[in-house]
Amino acid sequence: MRIAILTFDGFNELDSFIALGLLNRLKADGWKAEIASPSSHVTSMNGVVVEAQQTLEFANEADAVIFGSGIYTRAIAENSALLDRLQLDPLRQLIAAQCSGTLLLARLGLLADMPACTDLTTKPWVVQAGVRVVDAPFHAKGPIATAGGCLASQYLAAWMMAKRAGFETAASALHYAAPVGEKDEYVERLLKVVRPFIDEPAG
């Protein structure tokens, strides 16, 4: 599983880095999540400069794609030259978005009539794009998932792992990262959120 975490200037560190760290817990199983950006370096909303591991076009060949959020997402959503570089295929790929990244999914026509999650700031823009926003941290239908709230990145990672590697493998990876003293409860709560959206888990 090769995963592109789409990361643009003004990105939210929690979105990109939490998903990156959790998904790469499955390296031994052949998983590799990488930061994919439209330029060689991107600067986060708090001034952290990151060197891209992959180009934006890597998303087109990846097995899964995550759209992170950021303070400039609305401008990115209006940048057709940038979005035209993305040719995603939900028949082959898992595609997920967090917070304002949901707006990009809407602009790319990937949400169709499914409800979606986003953050409170982005909600009016997503609604304006014709998408029904639900008051929930996570929602998925088939190969498309959305999450709302910075720390909801853990749900996107958990969903991808459970959907492609099975719940047992996902639980093991999440258990390592979970807080000491509450690991079992933490993992159980995470998987409880994504389980209803996985029809036929692997493994």
Results as ranks from 00 to 15, higher is better:
residue 132 R to F: 15
residue 86 L to K: 01
residue 145 A to Y: 11
residue 93 Q to G: 05
residue 202 A to G: 13
residue 3 I to Y: 00
residue 85 R to K: 13
residue 92 R to H: 10
residue 52 A to N: 12
residue 69 S to P: 09
residue 183 K to T: 10
residue 82 L to K: 05
residue 147 A to K: 01
residue 184 D to F: 10
residue 19 A to C: 13
residue 107 R to P: 01
residue 5 I to G: 01
residue 181 G to F: 01
residue 48 V to F: 14
residue 63 D to S: 11
residue 143 P to I: 06
residue 30 G to Q: 11
residue 131 V to G: 03
residue 35 I to P: 00
residue 203 G to W: 00
residue 50 V to G: 08
residue 36 A to H: 08
residue 11 F to R: 05
residue 30 G to P: 11
residue 1 M to Q: 02
residue 141 K to N: 12
residue 51 E to C: 13
residue 46 N to H: 15
residue 165 A to V: 12
residue 25 R to K: 14
residue 183 K to S: 08
residue 170 A to F: 05
residue 18 I to R: 01
residue 193 V to N: 07
residue 50 V to E: 06
residue 50 V to W: 08
residue 143 P to M: 02
residue 66 I to S: 02
residue 196 P to K: 01
residue 16 S to V: 15
residue 16 S to E: 13
residue 18 I to W: 03
residue 20 L to K: 00
residue 159 W to L: 03
residue 68 G to K: 06
residue 195 R to P: 01
residue 163 K to Y: 10
residue 118 T to A: 02
residue 197 F to G: 08
residue 117 C to D: 02
residue 199 D to P: 01
residue 66 I to C: 00
residue 37 S to V: 00
residue 122 T to V: 04
residue 68 G to I: 04
residue 175 H to I: 03
residue 195 R to G: 06
residue 55 T to Y: 08
residue 45 M to C: 12
residue 159 W to A: 04
residue 158 A to E: 07
residue 153 S to F: 07
residue 157 A to N: 04
residue 102 T to E: 01
residue 27 K to T: 12
residue 47 G to T: 04
residue 70 G to K: 02
residue 64 A to F: 05
residue 199 D to G: 14
residue 124 P to Q: 02
residue 63 D to F: 11
residue 140 A to I: 02
residue 88 L to A: 07
residue 56 L to Y: 07
residue 84 D to W: 05
residue 133 V to K: 05
residue 64 A to G: 15
residue 101 G to S: 04
residue 68 G to V: 10
residue 182 E to K: 15
residue 169 T to E: 15
residue 34 E to F: 10
residue 196 P to R: 08
residue 169 T to D: 15
residue 75 A to T: 09
residue 149 G to W: 09
residue 26 L to N: 05
residue 178 A to R: 06
residue 13 E to D: 12
residue 153 S to Q: 05
residue 87 Q to H: 13
residue 152 A to N: 02
residue 61 E to F: 12
residue 44 S to L: 06
residue 11 F to C: 07
residue 196 P to F: 06
residue 15 D to Y: 03
residue 126 V to R: 02
residue 69 S to I: 03
residue 26 L to F: 10
residue 60 N to V: 10
residue 117 C to S: 09
residue 135 D to L: 09
residue 181 G to M: 14
residue 46 N to Q: 11
residue 90 P to V: 11
residue 48 V to N: 11
residue 5 I to Q: 09
residue 69 S to V: 04
residue 61 E to T: 14
residue 73 T to K: 06
residue 83 L to Q: 05
residue 168 E to T: 12
residue 184 D to K: 12
residue 106 A to C: 12
residue 10 G to P: 07
residue 189 R to F: 11
residue 59 A to M: 00
residue 146 T to Y: 00
residue 29 D to Q: 15
residue 172 S to C: 15
